[in-house]
Computed example of a mutant assay.
Amino acid sequence: MAYSQLQKVETSLQIKASAEQFYDVFCNKPHTIANISPENIQSVEVHKGEWGKEGSIVSWNYLHEGTVCVAKQVLEGIDKENNKMTMKVIEGDVLGLYKSFKSNLQVTPKGKGSVVLWAMEYEKQEDHIPDAHTLLQLAVVVSKKIDAYLTQGHN
Rank of each mutant, 00 (worst) to 15 (best):
Q7F: 00
Q7N: 13
V9L: 01
K16N: 15
K16P: 05
A17D: 07
E20L: 09
D24S: 13
D24T: 13
V25C: 03
F26P: 00
F26T: 02
C27S: 10
N28R: 12
K29N: 11
K29F: 05
P30A: 04
P30H: 07
P30S: 04
I33G: 00
I33F: 02
A34W: 07
S37R: 04
P38L: 04
E39H: 05
I41V: 15
Q42W: 05
Q42E: 12
V46W: 01
H47T: 11
H47R: 15
K48Q: 13
G49P: 01
G49R: 00
G49V: 00
E50Y: 06
W51I: 02
K53E: 10
E54Y: 09
E54N: 12
G55A: 03
G55S: 05
G55R: 07
S56R: 09
S56V: 02
S59F: 05
S59Q: 14
S59I: 11
W60E: 02
H64N: 10
G66W: 06
V68I: 14
V68D: 14
C69Y: 01
A71M: 09
A71C: 08
A71Q: 05
K72I: 08
Q73G: 04
E76L: 08
K80W: 05
E81Y: 09
N83C: 15
K84T: 07
M87D: 11
M87V: 02
V89H: 13
I90W: 03
V94F: 10
V94K: 04
L95T: 02
L95W: 06
L95G: 08
L97G: 11
L97I: 06
Y98R: 05
K102E: 12
K102M: 12
S103Y: 13
L105R: 03
Q106T: 07
V107R: 04
V107Q: 04
T108C: 09
P109R: 07
K110M: 10
G111K: 13
G113R: 01
V115H: 10
V116I: 12
V116T: 04
L117H: 15
L117A: 13
L117D: 13
W118Y: 09
W118F: 08
A119G: 09
A119V: 07
Y122N: 05
Y122D: 07
Y122R: 08
E123I: 11
H128G: 15
H128K: 15
P130H: 12
P130D: 12
H133D: 14
L135R: 11
Q137M: 10
Q137A: 14
Q137H: 12
Q137P: 01
V140A: 09
V142A: 00
S143C: 05
K144G: 05
K145C: 08
K145T: 06
I146P: 00
I146H: 04
D147L: 03
